[in-house]
Design a protein around this nucleic acid. Structure first.
Lengths: 217, 217
DNA sequence: GGCCTGCTTCGAAGAGGGTCGAAGCGTTCG
DNA sequence: CGAACGCTTCGACCCTCTTCGAAGCAGGCC
């Protein structure tokens, strides 16, 4: 057994670096200046941290003009963040703004590439049933998915992702990815420009109970 | 977004603590003295680290007589360790002893509760086929599993675990758990007293190619 | 070309955490 | 009952790592 856990742990250990990773948690690319303000540190400090994260293989960087865009190095880094969040205590809310933000995240967010939060759990319950270690598309679920233009058959298996705010499973993997994509295309959900929260639109509020048969949380 | 990644990261960041976690990675309980020698630090230092790990919710402790047994706090901690190992660089081998040990681990080990390593991948390939995001028991696999007394049907889905040494998927979850249990019962594999490596017995060397149709790596 | 902007490098100051020896406390065994 | 054992607490030393101001370096706009 000789993976160097400590070097990865050290990268996560600094609050400023952790905030950077969380800000990039959905796979977006952000420039150094935005990450500096997101982390609450000066540009030199942020630059230092970003260099360490790139060096440690957690981030990649791409230069475009005079900006440098940073992003997670891959899905396995996003999975790492989820795994850590699952065992981490919930941080005390520092401000009212953080409070409403946290509430929005608990309601609906993306988890790298699929829908999570309370809404993610509710949608999952309408479409799949637990089977062994993964999730299986139910007969009713297959019909609902077909109705909104997602190709899936009864009995297809879907990867289960354990939600760290809800402590319940929701649909991830390929089906989770295409489903979220479709919900955004239909404009039932909208991305937030700066956080991982997802906004339920009026169209979504009307359509989700009707088309998927879920009661909105 | 407000999980306190940094506090968990700080716990992983110290080499001594990382070694402790790895030593407990398969779910065993070990006394403080063993963990101190495993981590290569003095008893006071180990005690200090163990207290922090318990305080941080990564370990649990049980007093039995004058010994105190430490263990991982749960499966989600084991998953965390796997997720970290997957992104961590492989540590340089410090000694010859470490070298043979690392080799044994790459060949066959348990990953909390299921078989991993090269042998884990080989066994998986004989029994399941990838399907969407998880693994599905093949017709041939179901027959082989029945032959060794493991109950599984064709088409059953099994959780896939990405091996951090092989970078390939292998069977985890419920099927992985019962399969490893059965292989140990049959005495085809034996646990190592001090590491996560698994020893292939002579019986196993003869039976695995015959019963499961795998070529031993 | 000249200036502004975005980002990084350099240097020094400061804080935090790891380490071990010595000592204390409870348990077990003779 | 006393001694040995396992583990923890205390205290002091040391070291690494973070932090920001100032300066340097490049790309883009006028």
């Amino acid at each position: 057994m000789n993976a160097d856990l400590a070097s990865v742990g050290a990268l996560l250990a600094e609050p400023a670096r952790a905030k950077v990773l969380l800000a990039l948690g959905d796979g977006r690319s952000l420039p150094a200046s935005v990450l500096a303000s997101e982390a609450g540190v000066s540009p030199p400090t942020a630059s230092h941290h970003l260099a360490r994260l790139v060096d440690g293989g957690l981030l990649t960087v791409a230069s475009r003009g005079r900006h440098r865009y940073y992003a997670l190095a891959g899905p396995q880094v996003a999975e790492l963040l989820e795994a850590v969040a699952r065992v981490a205590p919930v941080q005390p809310v520092a401000s009212l703004r953080d409070g409403t933000r946290a509430h929005a995240l608990r309601y609906a967010r993306h988890c790298y590439d699929h829908l999570a939060g309370r809404l993610g759990v509710a949608v999952s319950e309408a479409l799949v049933v637990p089977r062994h270690d993964s999730l299986e598309v139910s007969a009713a679920g297959a019909g609902k998915l077909a109705a909104i233009g997602v190709d899936a058959r009864t009995g297809d298996s879907a990867l289960a992702c354990l939600d760290w705010t809800e402590q319940r499973h929701h649909v991830a993997g390929r089906l989770g990815r295409t489903l979220l994509q479709r919900l955004l295309e239909l404009d039932w959900l909208q991305r937030s420009p700066s956080t991982r929260a997802l906004q339920l639109t009026d169209a979504g509020r009307a359509a989700l109970p009707l088309e998927l048969g879920i009661t909105l949380p």
